[in-house]
């Protein structure tokens, strides 16, 4: 039970137990001795119930009792108290199942991936950082993906030189939805499928089509363009902070609130950005396709 469910227990269960059903008097239930032991001993040979017999007559009116097993639906009144208890727990009114565990603080340490000097003081922070930036990274173009599934598809489509050839003969573009086995002739067809069948957003960020005529060969030759753009520099100096506009780019991909929503100072800065990043540039796209990555593999 994670400790962070809240709100924390305020006035504890004694109160709510009483409130759930105030019965007249409930003393302890007295049970015959030795039950626990019998439970642990394992099944014993059951006492033989009275053997088969002639069926007893069913009750004559006005009596009507007949034994029956009850099947209760979700809204049966018998289940009300238990449901209420469950929801008190969900809403955090009851204490959680485990005590609050403080996340252990550790002395500050840095990410060990070369070129990354992000510092952390919790293991969880590091874990998330690593998983976001270093786990599913394309070794050719350094783009990072949220899942291995998306990375596999990316490598196949962007860096496998056979892919284009194969794609001309058969449907090669795999659906991005895990569990869907469909393949498509083009990324456009796939997008249509994602939007119509899976109700994905048309601008799904992890499905940027590969531009055949890519812009300046950004990643493969970062030094040529470096310096002029902060993002470029960042890639040069620290790969782990590669800020791909596909994922977070102010000019094209990230929605900036309308100027009306952004008071004065934003405008120049925004323009500044726009002027710095030619729209043709697609960050993170390896210009050299195939398996000759410009950098050493991670």
């Amino acid at each position: 039970m994670p400790a962070r469910k809240c709100p924390p227990p305020a006035s504890r269960s004694a109160g709510c137990a009483c409130a759930l059903a105030p019965p007249p008097s409930r003393a302890m239930l007295s049970l015959p001795p030795g039950l626990r032991r019998r439970l642990r001993e394992g099944p014993s040979s059951p006492p033989a119930p009275p053997a088969s017999r002639a069926p007893l007559p069913s009750p004559a009116p006005p009596f009507a009792f007949a034994p029956r097993r009850l099947r209760l639906g979700p809204h049966h009144p018998l289940l009300e108290d238990g449901d209420v208890h469950r929801h008190l727990y969900l809403q955090g009114v009851l204490s959680s199942l485990a005590e609050v565990a403080e996340k252990p603080k550790v002395s500050e340490f840095s990410c060990h991936i070369s070129g990354c000097c992000q510092a952390f003081d919790t293991l969880e922070g590091y874990e998330h950082h690593y998983n976001t930036l270093h786990r599913n990274v394309c070794s050719f173009c350094k783009r990072s993906f949220p899942s291995g599934h998306l990375l596999d598809i990316h490598i196949l489509e962007w860096h496998d030189s056979l892919f284009q050839i194969m794609a001309e003969k058969q449907n090669m573009y795999k659906c991005l939805v895990e569990g869907c086995a469909e393949k498509f002739k083009s990324s456009k067809d796939r997008k249509d499928h994602l939007v119509t069948v899976h109700l994905y957003p048309a601008d799904f960020r992890f499905d940027r089509p590969k531009k055949v005529k890519s812009g300046p060969k950004h990643v493969s030759s970062p030094k040529k363009q470096g310096g002029s753009m902060p993002m470029d520099v960042s890639m040069e100096t620290s790969e782990q902070f590669q800020v791909d506009p596909m994922e977070i780019g102010p000019s094209e991909n990230m929605e900036i609130p309308q100027p009306a929503a952004s008071p004065g100072p934003s405008v120049p800065e925004e323009r500044l950005y726009k002027s710095r990043i030619p729209s043709t540039i697609c960050f993170g796209q390896g210009a050299t396709r195939g398996f000759k990555g410009p950098r050493k593999k991670v």
């Binding site: 922070g125 976001t132 930036l133 990072s144 800020v243 791909d244 994922e247 977070i248 990230m254």
Partner: peptide, 8 residues
């Protein structure tokens, strides 16, 4: 945009 960024 922020949620899908790689800024952890």
């Amino acid at each position: 945009g922020l949620f899908t960024s790689s800024l952890a």
